[in-house]
Design a protein around this nucleic acid. Structure first.
Length: 558
RNA sequence: GAGCGCGUAGCUCAGCCGGUAGAGCAAUUGACUUUUAAUCAAUAGGUCCUGGGUUCGAGUCCCAGCGCGCUCACCA
């Protein structure tokens, strides 16, 4: 498929642009493999930025594989810095008090507050892996604790001890006056307390590979830099890891950008070539503020996946990684529908456009076929999320079956069994209804006149229990409405010439029974919802329990 | 102050290698509806932030300016 490769070489899609840097790199160095890395700080659960990093890195990796036709093996390493000290007890874990005594210990030496894993670090690592696995990412997991204690970092640690001054010469000018006097790129683990110490080195012995420092009890201690007795300070840790593992590509957020020079310099001082970088913009919350784990603003991966597919989130990550984008609930429906549109267009596009189509990158070059439903005249169409959201609001129900009922009005044969993708979307739409539409509902009490009319309606409907004839039920509604709320303007008339029904009758039904100003054609609604259920709904509207239920619902959300 | 990004229809945004300005929503009108919602069809709506430059031709490329946003101690 040389056509694909040559087109990819010209493609302006950002994963190809990044991948071409890597192609140039291997041509320059002659290396026979390429290593992608993403970093993860396990002081909390994986967040949406973690997903973005892995997803985007995977897109570059796939682009690289296409450009090189898989002649160069690639790996993606997800590196967890679980030896980092726990600086504060996270807010969102149980047994917080029990953790306090383990402050500043490496996360892999802090007990798991959930009581499930060997340590808190192990717990969070497991969460990360479970999360990456649910998306089907191809990656290798790496634990900093494992790498340090197993001796895998020993050569680089000895090298840093030897070239200590060179590393410090890079670091010191970047630091403030105060920090400069105590800074060390080695952070010893106290043999006595087990805590990660931010203390000055009294001596660094490059020949023997040891450091001497004052322990917490005031006694000088000498430990080897190897074997996990010492870990590296953040910035040297980046550069050293790149050098030790031979990392070729790592992307990170804009907040890291000023440090790029420092990381790279340290990597070079340690005799390695710095990796290729890609700096992406940060995500903003609904108020335009940066999303961060510590602030807890913005939305989580779970939030997103409650209302939309992983693919729609992947689309969000693909689009414009260099722009600060709002990442909030209200962007979700658009991403879902854009994804469907891109998927729909893909098969008919020339290769060049396919390579720029997000679904190409989301699906590693092999996007699936889009799902369609056929209407009565056998015209195939895709069901958009926007339309489903409208439908679910009209159906006024969290019961997916009611929604399927509405869908079958358009496409009689459609079902959850023959439309798996649509079934997923129905679930998302129901969740969206529950969390965003339903809370905005306002039920009101009927007036005396309305009360009487609704009572008559319930009585009249009782004679039609079991009916699924929307038109017949609609006729009942008109009959009752005509008796209580005739339209005297003469504008609307029934087919047989009698006076029509006032608009206010329908408003009453929607406001009292559905908590909205507008709603579905009520006869059709009753047919799908069930006549006896509809009578029950009217009864609850009359005795005030719809209002009370809604109050309870609202209260239960807080 | 430095770095990065943004400025296109009422709103949210697309706009690829420079070639007659696009979508969704909102609005208006119509079809179907004895109300509504949905669906379908149509209409209207823009000094592409400003000023220069390159070019036969600039929303697009270059320079300058204006406005807005984010990041930039320590820690990761």
């Amino acid at each position: 498929m040389p056509d694909l490769v040559s087109t990819a070489q010209q493609s302006t899609a950002w994963p190809f642009e990044e991948a071409r840097k890597l192609v140039a790199r291997i041509e320059r160095t002659g290396q026979k493999a390429v290593l992608f890395e993403t970093g993860y700080g396990p002081s909390g659960l994986p967040h949406i930025g973690t997903f973005g990093e892995v997803a985007r890195t995977t897109m570059v990796r796939n682009a690289f594989r296409i450009l090189t036709e898989d002649r160069i093996p690639t790996r993606l390493l997800c590196f967890s810095d679980d030896m980092d000290g726990m600086r504060k007890v996270p807010d969102n874990v149980p047994n917080r008090d029990a953790l306090t005594e383990f402050l500043h210990r490496p996360l892999s030496s802090v007990p798991d507050p959930f009581g499930e894993f060997e340590s808190f670090g192990h717990h969070n690592n497991a969460m990360l892996r479970r999360f990456l696995d649910t998306f089907g990412f191809d990656y290798e997991f790496a634990s900093a604790t494992d790498y340090y204690t197993s001796g895998r970092f020993d050569p680089i640690l000895r090298l840093i001890a030897e070239r200590y001054q060179a590393v410090m010469d890079i670091m010191l000018p970047t630091l403030g006056e105060e920090r400069r006097s105590t800074y060390s790129c080695f952070l010893p683990i106290s043999p006595k307390s087990g805590r990660v110490l931010y203390v000055p080195m009294k001596q660094v012995d490059g020949a023997n590979g040891t450091v001497t420092f004052e322990d917490e009890d005031g006694v000088d201690v000498t430990v080897p830099v190897t074997g996990g007795h010492v870990k590296l300070q953040w910035k040297p840790d980046f550069g050293a890891r790149w050098a030790a593992l031979g990392v070729d590509f790592e992307m990170y957020g804009k907040d890291h950008q000023p440090n790029t020079v420092v990381y790279d310099s340290i990597c070079r001082v340690l005799g390695a070539e710095a990796p290729e970088h890609f700096v992406y913009e940060l995500f903003l919350d609904d108020k335009g503020q940066k999303i961060s784990k510590s602030k807890g603003n913005g939305i989580t991966i779970d939030d997103w996946l409650k209302y939309a597919s992983p693919e729609s989130l992947a689309l969000f990550m693909f689009s414009k990684p260099r722009e600060a984008k709002k990442l909030y609930f209200d962007v979700i429906p658009r991403q879902v529908d854009d994804y469907l549109t891109f998927l729909e267009k893909f098969p008919g596009q020339p290769i060049k456009e396919q390579l720029g189509n997000p679904v190409f990158h989301i699906h590693g070059g092999r996007p699936p076929a889009v799902e369609t439903i056929s209407d009565a005249s056998n015209h195939a169409t895709t069901v958009s999320f926007a339309m489903l959201l409208n439908l679910v609001a009209v159906a006024n129900s969290e019961d997916p079956q009611v929604l399927w009922g509405f869908l079958r009005r358009y496409s009689p044969t459609v079902s959850a069994e023959n439309h798996l993708g649509l079934a997923r979307m129905v679930g998302y739409a129901v969740a969206y209804f529950r969390d965003f539409v339903r809370p905005s509902k306002v039920y009101r009490e009927p007036t005396e006149a309305e009360r009487s009319a609704l009572g008559d309606l319930a009585t009249a409907l009782t004679e039609h229990v079991g009916s699924t004839d929307g038109n017949a039920l609609q006729a009942v509604i008109y009959e009752v409405g005509r008796a209580h709320f005739p339209d005297l303007s003469g504008k609307s008339k029934s087919p047989d010439g009698r006076p029509g029904v006032s608009q206010s009758w329908f408003s009453t039904i929607y406001q009292v029974l559905l908590g909205a100003d507008r709603g579905p054609r009520f006869g059709s609604f009753a047919a799908l919802y069930g006549v006896s259920e509809t009578c029950e709904l009217i009864r609850k509207g009359l005795d005030g329990s719809l209002m009370a239920d809604h109050q309870h619902f609202l209260a239960s959300r807080n």
